[in-house]
């Protein structure tokens, strides 16, 4: 199969790109870090009014790994992702049942500090959405709202985040230019820098590359690989190649149900369910 060695492939590419000093570690670990779970989902049900969008999902997401959510449009990927940082709270008539634990703590428990939860669980959206502020201010924004004070401290954190997001070299001379003057790919990396500025444990990415060209997509993918060394990443994608390239684990959803989950390799080459096989081989979706 063609998809077989893409995971090794990607590490070389990321390494070869050399834009942000990757160490070249191959992110094919599957069992070494799997011992700890970052996110644990039990009996998750989500309703939009009367409509049940997610049905009895049980899922574990490994610490400091990349997990890809795949499945046809409307199957509930975004909905589940939004349960992890309770963005669904903002949706009218949306009801969530079951439990979602992040590092052991039930985030739907009473008394959960949702703002703190969202700080620890960064989110990157499909469409780059930088604020109409300067590049610097975009990354400083989460720091400021979470109470970080002091010009030097903020400047240092901004630089660190921009470096991690692989954007520093491109923008270091124009930090005070408007973020809207960046290209789409740069904007998306800025949004990633913004999301990781407050050192989240988990990063949720909802189709982060769907609005980008292949080159920008490659850059983001190697970024995902690099970030996964320190952050647990969940990425929703419609691009199967992308899932193979970046994800250690893959979860396949279909009509609100979790059909199958496991190491990416296995899902793409040797799935248990025939639906999964049909989907990954492009027979529907």
């Amino acid at each position: 199969m063609i998809l077989a060695d893409t995971s090794t492939d990607i590490s070389q590419k990321a390494h070869g790109a050399g834009t942000h000093g990757l160490t070249g570690t191959v992110p094919v670990t599957t069992s070494a870090t799997a011992a700890r779970q970052a996110v644990e989902v039990q009996n998750l049900e989500v309703f939009y009014g009367q409509h049940r969008a997610v049905h009895n999902v049980n899922l574990k997401i490994n610490h400091r790994e990349v997990t890809a959510f795949i499945g046809p449009s409307g199957c509930g990927k975004s909905t589940i992702l939004r349960c992890f940082n309770r963005m669904n709270d903002l949706v009218k008539h949306c009801r969530v049942q079951g439990s979602v634990k992040i590092h052991g703590a039930d985030i739907y428990a009473r008394g959960t500090d949702v703002m703190e939860l969202r700080k620890r669980t960064g989110m990157v959206f499909q469409k780059p959405n930088p604020f109409p502020k300067s590049i610097h201010e975009n990354v400083a924004y989460p720091l400021r709202i979470h109470g970080v004070r002091g010009k030097a401290v903020i400047a240092e954190k901004v630089e660190k985040s921009l470096r991690l997001a692989g954007l520093w070299d491109e923008v270091k001379d124009r930090l005070h230019a408007s973020a809207l003057s960046l290209s789409g790919g740069q904007q998306q990396r800025l949004c990633i820098a913004r999301a990781i500025a407050v050192d989240p444990d988990v990063l949720l990415m909802d189709e982060p590359c769907s609005a980008l060209d292949p080159i920008a997509t490659k850059t983001i993918e190697s970024l995902i690989n690099e970030l996964s060394k320190t952050i647990t990443i969940v990425v929703v994608t419609h691009n199967m190649h992308q899932a193979v390239r970046v994800a250690h684990q893959t979860a396949f959803f279909y009509m609100g149900n979790l059909v199958e989950t496991g190491p990416t390799d296995k899902i793409f080459h040797n799935p248990v369910q025939h639906q999964t096989l049909a989907y990954v081989t492009g027979q529907f979706g």
Partner: peptide
């Protein structure tokens, strides 16, 4: 005020008031 920016701010852990301030600045 664009929905994406609203979502973006909330996604970073902004409170209602902080998001509103962002909208006002916008």
């Amino acid at each position: 005020f664009p929905e994406e920016l609203e979502q973006g701010a909330y996604g970073l852990g902004a409170t209602w008031w902080q998001t509103t301030r962002l909208a006002l600045t916008y």
